[in-house]
Write a protein that binds this DNA or RNA. Structure first.
Length: 399
DNA sequence: CGGGTTTGACCGGCGC
DNA sequence: GCGCCGGTCAAACCCG
C-alpha cells in the first residue's frame, strides 16, 4: 500500500464504471467551477441580485443581523448567501467522501481475503506435491521445483516474508517459511533441509527472510579505475562472462568471509563509459562484519527490508521510481533510479555525479567504504555514508 | 600447499 | 524444439 491512500472511485472512476462494478455517486470537486463559464457566472450573480431586490424580507433580516454597518449593502448579502451554499456543498462533499472511503475499505477487505485464499490454496498445492514426493522416497522438493513454485507467487509472499512478520495466517504460514528456507537458505547452502510439513517457527521465518534477501540486489555506480571497490568484505571470484552488448566482461564474486555466506556481487564496467564501475550486491551476510564492511551490507539488507516491509511496496516503486528514491534518500531525483526492464526491476544508485552540496548539509562522521581509484569524486563516500544513515541506499525488487 | 583466479562446460530460463 | 543468454561449477592453473 502506498503512502497515499486514494479512494478507489476517485482514483479511477471511469475504470470502475467500465468494469461494471458498483459506482458510488461521485462528487466532482471541480465541476461546479468548471460548469460556470463566464456567462454562466454573470447570470448566476444576476439571479442572486434579482432575488435580493425582490425579497425584501431577507434584505431586512440581513441588515438587522449586520448591525450598524449598512454600507455593506447588496455585496454583503451575496457573500452571505454564497457562504451558506458553499457550506452545504462542503457538507455534501464530506458525505460523499465518507461513502467513498467506506467503499474503498470494503474493496480492500475483499482483496485481502482473495489474497489469503490464494495463499492457502497455493500452500495446499505445495503440500500435495510434497506428499507425492515423499511417497516416491524423496522428502524434499528440488530447487528447480521450488523455483517454479516461487515464480507462481508473483512476488506476493516474498514481500510478506521479508517483512519478518510472516503475515499469512494459519498453518500454511510456517510451511511457506520452511519452504523458503529450504529453497534458498537451506539447500543452496547444501546442508539444511526443512520439511514443508513441519510446524512453523520463527527461525524458519528468519531463514526465509534471509533467503529472499538473497534475491534482492543493490547496484552501485561509481567512477573508478580500480578493478573493484573496496567494501570491507572478502570476495572470491567464481566466474567471468562477456555480457551481451558490452565489450566489458562481467565478473562474479562470492563472499568468503564465512562458509556458506550467500552474498554475491557482480562487477562490470559501463559499456558507454568504461570509467564507471558498476557493482551489484545480492544477498545478506550470514556472519558478523567488520566495521568497514557494515556499510554495504547494511545497505543491501536495510534497503530490501524497507521495500519489503511495506514502507514502500515494489508496486509503488515501479509505478513511481522517484517516490522510492525520495523516500530512501535525501537526494535529488535521478540519483537512485529503478528500472523495470527485463530481466527484473533494478534500482541503481548512481554515485558518478557529484551531488549538490546544498542538498547534503549534514556532516558525515565516517568513510564507510573506499574507492581506491585515482580521481574519484570526494563527495561520493560521504554521500553514500549519509544515505546509510537514513536506512537505505537503493532497492531492488524480486527476481 | 593453500587460497585465489581463469576459463570452458554446464544448466536453466526464455523467446522465437 | 532450438538457440541464446545469464549464472554457476569445477578442473586447471597461478602465486606467495
Amino acid at each position: 500500500m502506498g503512502p497515499v491512500d486514494l479512494p478507489m472511485s476517485l482514483a479511477s472512476p471511469a475504470m470502475e464504471a467500465d468494469e461494471g462494478r458498483r459506482v458510488l455517486n461521485e462528487m466532482d470537486f471541480f465541476s461546479l467551477e468548471k460548469s460556470r463559464t463566464e456567462t454562466d457566472q454573470k447570470a448566476y450573480k444576476a439571479q442572486n441580485l434579482n432575488l435580493e431586490k425582490e425579497d425584501l424580507t431577507m434584505d431586512t433580516e440581513l441588515q438587522l443581523l449586520s448591525g450598524s454597518d449598512l454600507s455593506m449593502g447588496d455585496g454583503f448579502l451575496v457573500a452571505a448567501q454564497e457562504t451558506d451554499e458553499r457550506k452545504s456543498e462542503i457538507t455534501a462533499m464530506k458525505a460523499k467522501m465518507g461513502q467513498m472511503e467506506e467503499e474503498n475499505q470494503r474493496l480492500r477487505t475483499i482483496l485481502a481475503q482473495m489474497n489469503q485464499n490464494y495463499n492457502f490454496l497455493h500452500m495446499q498445492f505445495i503440500s500435495v506435491m510434497q506428499k507425492n514426493k515423499s511417497m516416491n522416497g524423496n522428502t524434499n522438493l528440488s530447487n528447480q521445483e521450488l523455483n517454479k513454485l516461487e515464480e507462481g507467487r508473483d512476488g506476493i509472499v516474498p514481500k510478506q516474508l521479508l517483512d519478518g512478520r510472516c503475515l499469512m495466517e494459519g498453518n500454511f504460514n510456517g510451511d511457506y517459511c520452511a519452504l523458503k528456507s529450504s529453497f534458498n537458505g537451506g539447500q543452496e547452502e547444501g546442508k539444511e533441509t526443512v520439511s514443508l510439513l513441519s510446524p512453523s517457527s520463527s527461525k524458519s521465518c528468519e531463514q526465509a527472510q534471509e533467503a529472499t534477501m538473497r534475491k534482492a540486489r543493490v547496484s552501485v555506480r561509481v567512477r573508478s579505475d580500480a578493478p573493484m571497490i573496496t567494501d570491507g568484505c572478502h570476495w572470491r571470484k567464481y566466474g567471468q562472462k562477456m555480457a551481451k552488448g558490452s565489450t566489458c566482461p562481467r565478473a562474479y564474486y562470492r563472499c568468503t568471509m564465512a562458509v556458506g555466506c550467500p552474498v554475491r556481487k557482480q562487477v562490470q564496467r559501463c559499456a558507454d563509459d568504461q570509467t564507471i564501475l558498476i557493482t551489484s550486491y545480492e544477498g545478506k551476510h550470514n556472519h558478523p562484519l567488520p566495521p568497514a564492511a557494515m556499510s554495504m551490507a547494511s545497505t543491501t539488507s536495510a534497503a530490501a527490508s524497507m521495500l519489503l516491509s511495506g514502507t514502500i511496496s515494489s508496486a509503488d516503486s515501479l509505478m513511481n521510481p522517484n517516490l522510492l528514491a525520495q523516500a530512501v534518500l535525501p537526494c535529488p531525483s535521478g540519483f537512485a533510479t529503478i528500472s523495470a526492464s527485463a530481466p527484473f526491476p533494478t534500482v541503481t544508485l548512481d554515485l558518478t555525479q557529484p551531488p549538490n552540496p546544498l542538498q547534503f548539509q549534514k556532516p558525515l562522521s565516517q568513510l564507510q567504504f573506499s574507492i581506491p581509484a585515482v580521481g574519484r569524486p570526494t563527495a561520493i563516500p560521504q554521500l553514500f555514508g549519509q544515505s546509510l544513515q537514513v536506512g537505505a541506499c537503493a532497492i531492488i525488487t524480486f527476481v
